[in-house]
Design a protein around this nucleic acid. Sequence first.
DNA 1: AATATATGACTGACCGGTCAGTCACCGTCA
DNA 2: TGACGGTGACTGACCGGTCAGTCATATATT
Lengths: 234, 234
Amino acid sequence: MSKTPKSEVLAKPAQSRRVTTRAAGAPKATPKPPANRAERAAERRAAIVEAALDEFIARGFAATRLDDIAKRAGVAKGTIYLHFKDKESMFEDLIRTAIVPLVGRMHAPPPPGATVRDAIEGFALAFMQEIASTRRGDIVRLIVAEGPRFPAIADFYYREVVSRGLAGMRALIEAGIARGEIRHQNLARFPQIMVAPALIAVIWQSLFARHAPLDAIEMFRVHLDLIFGERRAA
Amino acid sequence: MSKTPKSEVLAKPAQSRRVTTRAAGAPKATPKPPANRAERAAERRAAIVEAALDEFIARGFAATRLDDIAKRAGVAKGTIYLHFKDKESMFEDLIRTAIVPLVGRMHAPPPPGATVRDAIEGFALAFMQEIASTRRGDIVRLIVAEGPRFPAIADFYYREVVSRGLAGMRALIEAGIARGEIRHQNLARFPQIMVAPALIAVIWQSLFARHAPLDAIEMFRVHLDLIFGERRAA
DNA sequence: AATATATGACTGACCGGTCAGTCACCGTCA
DNA sequence: TGACGGTGACTGACCGGTCAGTCATATATT
């Protein structure tokens, strides 16, 4: 009962591949194409990652087509499978890769000479500028969206970002309490509170900014005023 | 060409159609077997809505199969199309319908005799119990997840829930400021801050509760302490 | 030439949407 | 009262489009 191999032929298109005259002499004269194979392969991979992130962010996991990723990356679909096992593991790889740079910032250096408030404020400023208002923020949203369907990603994100970030934040809060900058000891039990407005900002940007722009940085400052007391006279 | 009507019987679960003697007087006396056609249709629609919500919450829009919804609702796929135009508008209808009950609570009654803090705390308590820890919370997450792909839903949600909710919250905050319960006037500019921990709780429940349970209510109380001052000695 | 890399046409499974057919219900009439 | 025909809610096999993943072929590199 094998399938009739009937019309195997028909589809052959012309396929005259332009050979690019290939002027004699210059073998190395690769003008644009950067460098050796490995490098070019790495570049292609990077292009795929870039394109895939854009597509996944814009459409979510299930609705993203690999054809679109390939087209956006300027690559054939088969090339994707030279770098990734399948769509699912590609998605997980992608998110993991994209998260790493987020973690870098998380090692909050214990406040050197500045106040704890300054440390947190600088931190929040960086977060708002580098994450909330960029594509990185969409990655956070993507995790919220697809997390339940990709427990592995949710776990990874919790381990690598959430638990570390909260631990760092807790340390800062305790330092603030020890120094007398923060009066509410209970805050150390819920570092989430410190971070909450940042998450609000991320979500707001991608859902409601069109309707009502939100000055995320100013909001965070007001939030810090609640915790540390007013900065200056209103 | 109709297929042999042979085993037409099998799929019908018991469902012995009670003929409901149809006593003249009592048209309402339908005990178990629902009722007339219209009523049964409404029940089916409700079953579809219920099933669809579960599926959409579990899988997201794109990955949800209408066959699964039909199976879960105990209905044929075609039946879905008697009630909804297509998958997309069904999703939008669903979310809209599911949001409405959320809005009911939003009409924060101006604090009658109680303090503003009590009003907000009661409000938050209800939110945490009725939303954050139930399927309604997943609906909020679903909006965050699919919002960018369904601007109509994001718009609707902003109009019906976010803007109203924030307006109500702002009113409460201003009342609190007027009464001297709240010292930070700037808080009225960012009612989002008041609400932020609630959103955190919703997200936490569906992503990280397995790793680290979060006492959302206690967190919110601590948050209120920041705003209103400590309730009592720690 | 031999090998590594890239391509994109192709396949097959899957799924949204359709529609001809069925049958429970209801009003009506003898 | 009984039974009969019209109605429309319901069914599920089917169709056609879509898309993840494959692989024979083509190109680049050594």
